[in-house]
Write a protein that binds this DNA or RNA. Structure first.
Lengths: 204, 204
DNA sequence: TTTGGAAAATAAACAGTGTTTAGTAAATTT
DNA sequence: AAATTTACTAAACACTGTTTATTTTCCAAA
């Protein structure tokens, strides 16, 4: 009975082969400019073969999104380690912003693009985001147990902090900060300053 | 010499005819699913004709974006009227959030999508956003002159408030709030609550 | 009023896209 | 060795944005 196991293994290998190629091309060229044909050519298979492993291009993107969230969780695991909950909150925020700055294309498909969400519709709720959100929620819950923040509800606090972080990062990723004429380096300072200011403002 | 004036007038009429059709279709079907051929068919001209009036599809979208920002400015003009700067700040925030909730497709192309920004590149800086941003900046400048807010710099304050508002709205528009399982009505309450909470937190 | 030329509109083509279908080649089972 | 299942692909379908060559429409001068 080793054959069906090998087949299943080979199937998984093929899936990751496809996803890896797709990820690489989405990151360098962007989603729209990456075609199924390009991906197929890169892994030296015919375009039709991809459809034996993934339903459509959106599902491919959804899988890439999954991987991107793992990257964010890894970043959190590396950079969020303080036992002081307020300090940890700061680490989470800066880790998040840093991730967005270093991986704009990933950030785009994780939090901004419509395409990968089309795969959900009517299905189970989206949960790619869950683990990293829970890191934030747990941190804020601890902060509030110790009465450190000017919030009444941990969930509202988590949502607010996320919204602020996302607002700062996504306006940058979507190039909307051209409104305030600044160079790239200044934008980084601006975002970091805004985050620190916000943390001070919500602190009790 | 009335002929060349009529021609110019007819040219402008054609341009608005195209933009109006494009706007309507972008709003109902979305940018990707709206094709040049569809727009051409709607206004009963050949696809090639559109290229006599607009360089490419991105430029079309850029023009639609311009109109969308006018709509936002109209909303501000209608809903932002208090002489009390703090009250006015609240009106701006709620007007902004309300606009995003009522016009998600417009909000998307104004603040989230990459496509319309491709038209800028290397050109003059993007300024479609400027007027509405100045409304916010002026309000915050007045707030700070009267020492009402926990900010040191009006520009940073404007950026922060915008980021918070944008974060709240855009996470909703991009369907990322599925993370927190809520019905549509509850999401509205959550966003409004978050805004009000934030305004309290930045108040001196 | 006819004619020449400019301007406006288009038909058709080009090079691409995501996806499906029908058919071939390989691997496994009988 | 034959039959059957599995894996793959060539070719087609119905689109897409955009360009080119051609036709139609319009206006001015002869």
């Amino acid at each position: 009975m080793g054959i069906s196991e090998r087949k299943e293994r080979e199937r998984q290998e093929m899936r990751t082969k496809i996803i890896d190629a797709a990820t690489a091309m989405f990151m360098t060229e962007g989603y729209e400019k990456t075609s199924i044909r390009n991906i197929a050519e890169k892994i030296e298979y015919s375009p039709a073969t991809l459809y034996l492993y993934y339903k459509d291009k959106d599902e491919l993107l959804y899988e890439v999104q999954k991987q991107a969230f793992s990257k964010l969780e890894e970043a959190f695991a590396r950079e969020v380690n303080s036992t002081d909950p307020l300090e940890r909150l700061s680490q989470i925020c800066h880790s998040y912003v840093h991730f967005g700055k270093d991986n704009p294309k990933m950030y785009d498909l994780m939090f901004m693009m419509q395409a990968p969400m089309n795969t959900i519709k009517e299905n189970e709720p989206w949960k790619n985001n869950k683990d990293s959100f829970v890191v934030l929620l747990d941190c804020l819950t601890e902060c509030m147990e110790k009465d450190l923040l000017r919030f009444d509800d941990a969930m509202l606090a988590a949502f607010s902090v996320w919204a602020m972080g996302h607002g700062l990062v996504s306006l940058n990723v979507s190039c909307r900060l051209q409104t305030m004429n600044m160079t790239g380096a200044n934008v980084d300072v601006l975002i970091t300053t805004a985050i620190d200011q916000y943390l001070k403002q919500i602190k009790k």
